[in-house]
Every structure is written in structure tokens, then in C-alpha cells.
Design a protein around this nucleic acid. Structure first.
Lengths: 345, 345
DNA sequence: TCGTTTTTCTAGAACGATTTAGAAGATCGA
DNA sequence: TCGATCTTCTAAATCGTTCTAGAAAAACGA
């Protein structure tokens, strides 16, 4: 017993395969009566409709956009920021009857070429927080797949929806400087620190462009401050917690801690809490993104319209009417209880 | 200028297409030297590697599992419960070098057969909180796609990873009954209520099986209680908020509110907060799922191992070694500050 | 009535790979 | 040295559609 295909149906109905195809895809190309008859026959034979792969091959359209993440896919969901982005993107995707393909970007398999990015059946790709130099992007470019990044690349023909990272960070930096802070620790995502104890990094070890730009922005706005970079691993609450614990338990506490994402900053707040320290009084904490939990926790943060970012990326990828190739989104510094004047010593 | 295909590379390298294919997929089928030469030639020509659709068609494997949701895709991300499930599933998917295809299940397009589920290029499907009778499931069955549901269906040959909804709810019900509650409002997800004002439902209007079972469980454990069902729309914080506001502002307040998910329950807690009511003292609130925010908020809830659920579904779908077809996961009632004795009147 | 247009359907060629079966050459044991 | 076994490579079929061009039949206009 072989599988029921379009051809099978065609034979059973006594018509050509093309006609069956048309019955499914172009109802106006054949008489209603015949279409009815074909569909009934298909039903009778248990035909499941045109095969997705075959259709994709022949027509060149898959009906899916890929979402590329660095790190493990599982991490992607741990940050509400990513979730917000996905929600926005999904909204537009749905509008265009398109599915979302979540593509993990394991750092290990950039070998002979057979990795997830190669395999992925997608028409376009959203590049979420992936460094512009990542080899996977070359693979996509090679495949001729349109892509839009959430990070501003340096290439002029690159499409992106981003924020002015440097300026956003600078605004936060000015806020901190104004409060008298001269000793800062920045918490960031770093793969090398994952699984081991927190590590202190130098600026050139900062991987992602957006992180790098944020660090630069803070530097620019706080020229006479001492600024250290510390990572507790991947971008997650637990990493922020670990890194902040390490910082707080050292002999050399800063007066302010900035998480390069809210989850990191919230981890830092938790570390303070367990040590009886009050954010905004004993130590200032700030973050980036303004995820829902940031407001609840009273975390000072740089707010960015993340869901809109997802929507904009979706439109760029799917809406032929959208012509803009580079969109700069606004940011806003939300000052909350977690930031306060630097204690005098 | 036509596209560079496997054939182009083969000609340029002076070998047969099969050999080029083997160079990519079966390195041990040809000499290392030749493979090297072919790959170099491919690189030179800008060949992006075997086309995903063509490979999928010929080999019958796509390298993706679908995740089916009811409602808008965007809603999927608003509930941390769903996010946790996805994280677990993603973990296993990554292990098997498989991508995740998020398939929206618009209730509108069950028409001529050409909907997202038909189109979806997937090898298997995870059915997340979709009612067992949903037509999309028939489409998948027709396509011969293996599927695992997060809801226990009544068919014996259905695969699922689920919890004992009725018993879990009954345990919560007994807890409430013990505290003296005799007047309960259950908050639930309901599509009809979306966009309009909150509505009161009867038991037969409850859509999803899992919701229905939970309601039954509560009924069973609280036989002499008055139980009302109210929905403020989709399964989201805002719906819970709206529904609870409606309930609290009525003349006829219950002594306890149970959200059929934590996000609904948290919405109810928020409604109480803005009215100066203290959960656990003035009114008892409880939920289901035990998402991270539930612990922070001190919400009494029925905890279920959601990430493990995702992992288990992933293994069932992808790991050939996994033979179990139906897995019952444990639940645990977490009593927190939001539940307390019913006020005497 | 006769050409012209429109409607309805079909034949056959792609789409770009993988697979199967087997040929040609190299290696091996005796 | 000779048949047998490996290794290395290829020819041709195939996966299940959609597309292009065009044929046959029907409808139309004058």
C-alpha cells in the first residue's frame, strides 16, 4: 500500500494531477462542480492535501520565518524580553499566515555545513541578539534568505530594527553620574563564565555588539568612574544573582550595579535582598529592557518597545509594502526606586 | 544567472551529483581528498549547501517538530506556563538537532483545507492545550504525523503527557473546603468573553477538556459549595484582572476565587490589591501551574512540573528509544499566603 | 456562420536533492 | 597471479508538487 498522493487522487477522479492541484490552490481555474467532485474523492481516499515539502520545493515558498537565537533555545524563553519580541513577531507572522521556526544556534556545529541553519526550511529570518559576525549569518546570506536583525550592524545594506544602544546607555550613565556614582560594576552575558564561577572581563572580551555599545555608552557618560565588567554566565536571573553575590561579597564593592538586561539586574537585586541590602539606598541597581517584572520590582531601567520591535521585524520580513530597511526605535529611561544617590564615604 | 545547485557544483568539480551529496551527508562514502575538493569548489561558487525543501521532499524528514496552540500565537508567550513548556521541549529538540515550528491555530481558516496545519513542514507535533476534538488534529492524523498532546484524550491510542486534572483540582478543593469556603468563583479562559465584558458561564460552556476536568474536580471536592464560572476573555493576566474586578464589584462576592491558571489568579490578586483587599485574609485566591511569579506573589497553587512535561513530550516525539505512550505527571498543592480561612459572617 | 475570446482542462517539464543498484578500480589473501 | 572483497564513484530513478504552454470545448460578437 503506497501513500495517497495528488496523483492517486487524480487517477481516481479521472482528471490530471494539475487539475487536482488547482482544486486546492486555484479554485477559479476549474468548474465548481469538478472541484467538488475532486475534493470529495480526495476525502474518500484519505488524501491529506498537498504535501508541504513538495509544495515548498516547487513553489519556492515555505510559509515560515526563522528566528535565530544564540545560545540554547531553552534560554531564549527564560528572558521575558525575548518573549516580548516573539509575541510581536508572532502577531505579524500570524497576519501573513506564516509560522515561526525557532532555530537553535549551537556554537558547536559550525562544521561541515550541516547545521540547523542550513537545514532550516524558511523564507526569511529574524536575527535575535546574534552578533553581526556570526558565521550562521553568512550561511543565510549565502542561501539568499532575507534577514532582519535586532542589532544594528555596520554594513549599510544590512536590515535592522534596533535602538541607539550607546545613547540609551549614556542616558542611564548620566543619571548615575548625576547621583554621584563613580564606581560601577556592569553585569553581562558571557558564555565562558557559564557553569563556572563569575569572572571579570575586559572590554574587548565583550561579545555582542549591543552589549559592547552599552558598555561604551556608560563609559562615555561616566568618564571619571571606575567601571568593571563581571559575568556570571548566560543571560539569566541566576547568572545575575551569582555575579552580584560575587561582587557584593568581595572587599571592593561598587556603589552601583548595572545589568545589561533586566533579568541580570533583577538577579542582582535578589542578591542584595538576601544580604539585607536595600536597592536605591545601600547600592544602586539598574537594568535594560523594562520587562514587566522590572516595574513590579521597582527597578530603574532603560525601557525599549520590545513588542513593537518584534512587529517591525515581522513587517520588514513579510510585508512587501514595507520598504524601510533600518528602523531606530525610541528608548526611555525609567527611574524607579532601585536607583539613588551614591553613599558618601 | 541561475541559482547554484548541487548539480552546478558537481559539474564544476567534475563529479556526479550523488558524490557532491555524499560529500555533505556521508563523508565516509568518498575519499577525504575529493570531499575537500568538492567543498572548496562549493565554497568558491557560493553554494549554500543542500536545499532544505528538496532534501525534505526526497528524504521524508524535515527536521522540525510543530507546536500547535489554540488562540493567537502571541497569546502563547503571555503565559509563563507555556513558556516553561516550550523551554523543556526546546531542550530536547536541540538535543536531536531539531527546530521548533510554532503553528498558530486560527479558528477561522478550517475551510478548504489550506490552513497552517496543512502547510506546516513538520515531522511530528506537540499539541499544547488544544481540545481533543479540534479539527486540526484530524488533519494531522490524516497526514500521518505522530503527535503527543498535553491533554489526556479519551482515545486509548492517543499519546499524551498530562496530569490528573480532576484529582489535582480536587486536592485544591479539599484545601478550600477545609478552610470553610462554601462560595467559590472560578476564573477561566473563554474565547467568547474576549473583547467584551466578563461573562458568567455554565459548565457545558467550558471548552477545553483540562479546564472542564478541573472544574469537575473542584465540584467533587466541594459538594455543598456554590460555584460560579466567570471569564474575562483569553488566558491572560488582564483577563483575570477584568473578571475579578467584575466579581469583586458585584453585590455578591464569593469567599474564594480560583484561577484555572496562575496568570488568571494573579490578575485576581491585582484586582484585590487595587481595592485594598488582602489575599488570604479578606478573600482567598488560588491558581494552577505554579509559574515563577506565583511563588513571588505568595499565591496558593497546584504545582505541576511544566518543564518536565515539555521534555517528556519532546522525548516521545523524537527519541525512538522512548516507548511509553501515556505519561501521568505528578502535581503538588503549594499552600501559600493567598489562601486562608473563609471569613465568618 | 465564422473567427475570436473565454473557460476548462491537460501534458510534460521543472524544482533540487537523495537513494539504489551497480560499475570500475584498488587491495588482499593464498 | 587470480578470484574475492573493499573502496570509491556514478547513472538513473524518484520524492510529490506546481508551473508553463497550449489544446479542446464553449461562449460570444457581428
Amino acid at each position: 500500500m503506497s501513500r495517497v498522493t495528488l496523483k492517486t487522487v487524480a487517477q481516481a477522479a479521472g482528471v490530471s494531477p494539475s487539475t487536482v492541484s488547482n482544486a486546492y490552490n486555484k479554485p477559479d481555474q476549474l468548474s465548481a462542480a469538478l472541484r467538488e467532485r475532486i475534493l470529495a474523492k480526495a476525502q474518500e481516499l484519505g488524501y491529506a492535501g498537498p504535501d508541504a515539502s513538495a509544495r515548498a520545493l516547487r513553489s519556492g515558498k515555505v510559509g515560515a520565518v526563522g528566528v535565530l537565537f544564540t545560545d540554547k533555545l531553552a534560554y531564549a524563553f527564560s528572558d521575558p524580553y525575548a518573549v516580548g519580541f516573539l509575541a510581536g513577531l508572532a502577531e505579524v507572522a500570524e497576519e501573513f499566515a506564516t509560522s515561526l521556526l525557532l532555530v537553535p544556534l549551537s556554537s558547536t556545529d559550525i562544521q561541515g555545513g550541516t547545521n540547523a541553519v542550513q537545514q532550516a526550511a524558511i523564507d526569511a529570518a529574524a536575527i535575535f541578539c546574534v552578533a553581526p559576525g556570526h558565521p550562521a549569518l553568512d550561511v543565510l546570506k549565502n542561501r539568499g534568505i532575507p534577514m532582519v536583525s535586532t542589532d544594528r550592524g555596520d554594513h549599510p545594506d544590512l536590515s535592522w530594527v534596533a535602538i541607539d544602544e550607546t545613547e540609551a546607555a549614556a542616558e542611564l550613565g548620566r543619571h548615575l553620574a548625576r547621583l554621584g556614582h563613580r564606581d560601577l560594576v556592569i553585569l553581562l552575558d558571557n558564555a565562558q563564565a557559564a557553569g563556572s564561577r563569575p569572572v571579570e572581563l575586559s572590554l574587548d572580551q565583550v561579545g555582542y555588539t549591543d552589549c559592547e555599545l552599552r558598555v561604551r555608552g556608560l563609559h562615555k557618560a561616566m568618564p571619571d568612574a571606575r567601571i568593571r565588567l563581571v559575568s556570571g554566565g548566560h543571560n539569566a536571573f541566576s547568572s545575575g544573582l551569582a555575579a552580584a553575590e560575587w561582587v557584593l561579597d568581595s572587599q571592593d564593592r561598587p556603589t552601583a550595579i548595572v545589568g545589561l538586561s533586566d533579568v541580570l539586574a533583577l538577579g542582582a537585586m535578589e542578591a542584595m535582598r538576601t544580604r539585607g541590602l536595600v536597592p536605591g539606598r545601600d547600592l544602586t541597581v539598574a537594568g535594560f529592557d523594562d520587562i514587566p517584572a522590572a516595574e513590579t520590582a521597582g527597578l530603574t531601567t532603560v525601557s525599549q518597545p520590545i513588542k513593537d520591535k518584534g512587529r517591525a521585524v515581522g513587517r520588514m520580513l513579510l510585508d512587501p509594502a514595507s520598504t524601510e530597511r533600518q528602523i531606530m526605535m525610541p528608548t526611555e529611561l525609567k527611574v524607579r526606586a532601585s536607583s539613588g544617590p551614591a553613599p558618601r564615604n
